[in-house]
């Protein structure tokens, strides 16, 4: 079965026309611009309209889309090691994809899955100042992978949109992203411990 791919991006209209693949069956393009309303932290996507954000704009469409795709490609400027504001605004509104309840995995607390499967994620960052920021982005990808129970994820960075466009034309290959050597680090000592 062909891979159903969802592309979330913060490219301008002209850049997206130039870089993104042509429309086809199984491909969904979700622009992060214009920026959607902020997540209000109300947990309505868990306890009021389970699975979907309560705010009535297109941002509430993203979480249900995650369940309908095999691969999510996130294209974002790399900002301090994380996503750009518009991309993050979409991601913030997507926690309805998982349940509010907690479970333990290797003794640590995570949310329970809502759907039987999760998509794989690949992150295409572009911009500048990759250095330490890219290492942070890899840790962010690993954390998101654990929380969304994604089978695998990958992180790539591109200095130019031309390179990003070329990468998008290639068949996605998703080795599991190995956690960085110091992930998640030694358990911090707490007061009184």
């Amino acid at each position: 079965m062909a891979t159903r791919e969802l592309i979330l991006h913060d490219l301008s209209d002209s850049d997206s026309l130039d870089c993104l693949p042509d429309p086809k069956i199984g491909l969904t393009i979700f622009p992060a611009l214009p920026k959607v309303n902020l997540c209000q932290g109300c947990f309505g996507c868990w306890v009021k309209t389970p699975g979907r954000c309560v705010i009535k704009d297109r941002g509430s469409d993203f979480a249900p889309l995650l369940a309908k795709h095999d691969l999510v490609t996130v294209i974002s400027r790399l900002v301090f090691g994380g996503f750009s504001g518009p991309v993050k605004a979409i991601i913030d509104r997507s926690i309805g994809f998982i349940l509010p309840f907690f479970e333990y995995r290797n003794g640590r607390m995570f949310h329970v899955r809502r759907y039987p499967e999760s998509p794989s994620f690949r992150y295409f960052f572009y911009g500048r100042n990759f250095g330490p920021n890219l290492e942070t982005a890899k840790k962010l990808a690993q954390a998101n992978k654990q929380n969304f129970m994604s089978p695998c994820c990958s992180v790539d960075c591109f200095a130019t949109l031309a390179e990003l466009k070329l990468a998008l034309t290639k068949e996605p290959k998703l080795p599991g992203l190995e956690p960085p050597a110091d992930w998640p680090g030694p358990r911090p000592s707490l007061p009184g411990a």
Binding site: C39, F80, G85, K88
Partner: peptide, 14 residues
């Protein structure tokens, strides 16, 4: 927020 900062803070910091 989803392992990182709320989106509006990212914009403010930039």
């Amino acid at each position: 927020y989803v392992d990182a900062l709320p989106s509006h803070l990212v914009d403010l910091m930039e």
